[in-house]
């Protein structure tokens, strides 16, 4: 049977290196079921992303997406467990929960990608080290030879810039 559409290079990485990707995600989440779910989510997201951004290094990109999503999932779960382990569940009748998966659209991603590309080089670099490479703000400051305060400002600036790119469609 022929597939209707050939796999993109990033999708191929997910097929070929599935176990490696799974293991890198499992290391972060320490839960096989969750790890499976995140790998699947990552696969769906790179499929969407393929139409919105150009990927020059498919393998590095596949691992980046899987790793980012795994860390995000871990953080969001940690936030939610506090709601129940805390005091009573009587928080003024308001319960807050982030969705486990955040759905993204191609157009949004295209706009955010364009916004990132228009950032000053140093701001972009600071943001990538923090967001994708997982360095702390202090480590980013050391690498770039600037103050931690400036790094903090550049990260806020990058996210706010992406935010306005979505609201001014």
């Amino acid at each position: 049977m022929r597939q209707s559409k050939p796999l993109s290079p990033v999708e191929e990485v997910f097929v070929k290196d599935r176990i490696k990707i799974f293991n890198s995600v499992l290391k972060i989440l320490a839960n096989r079921e969750l790890a499976e779910d995140v790998v699947h989510d990552a696969y769906l997201k790179v499929r969407e992303a393929g139409a919105a951004v150009s990927v020059k290094q498919p393998a590095a990109y596949a691992f980046q997406v899987a790793r980012c999503l795994a860390i995000d999932r871990y953080r969001r779960r940690a936030l939610e467990t506090g709601i129940f382990s805390g005091e009573s569940d009587d928080t003024q009748g308001v319960t807050y929960s982030t969705p486990e998966r955040i759905e993204i659209g191609r157009e949004e991603l295209r706009l955010v990608s364009r916004a990132m590309n228009s950032l000053p080089t140093r701001t972009r670099r600071a943001f990538e080290l923090y967001r994708m490479a997982g360095y702390t703000q202090r480590e980013v400051a050391e690498q770039l030879g600037v103050s931690t305060t400036l790094v903090n400002f550049m990260i806020r600036d990058a996210l706010s810039h992406c935010r306005s790119s979505l609201s001014s469609e």
């Binding site: 590095a60 990132m116 967001r131 996210l159």
Partner: peptide, 23 residues
């Protein structure tokens, strides 16, 4: 507050899907 936080989290997810510039 909830809306702003959700927006920040959404942008956080989106930026994680942007490939690095110099790769």
């Amino acid at each position: 507050h909830r809306e702003a936080f959700q927006e920040a989290e959404r942008l956080w997810t989106l930026t994680g899907l942007v490939p690095p510039k110099d790769e």
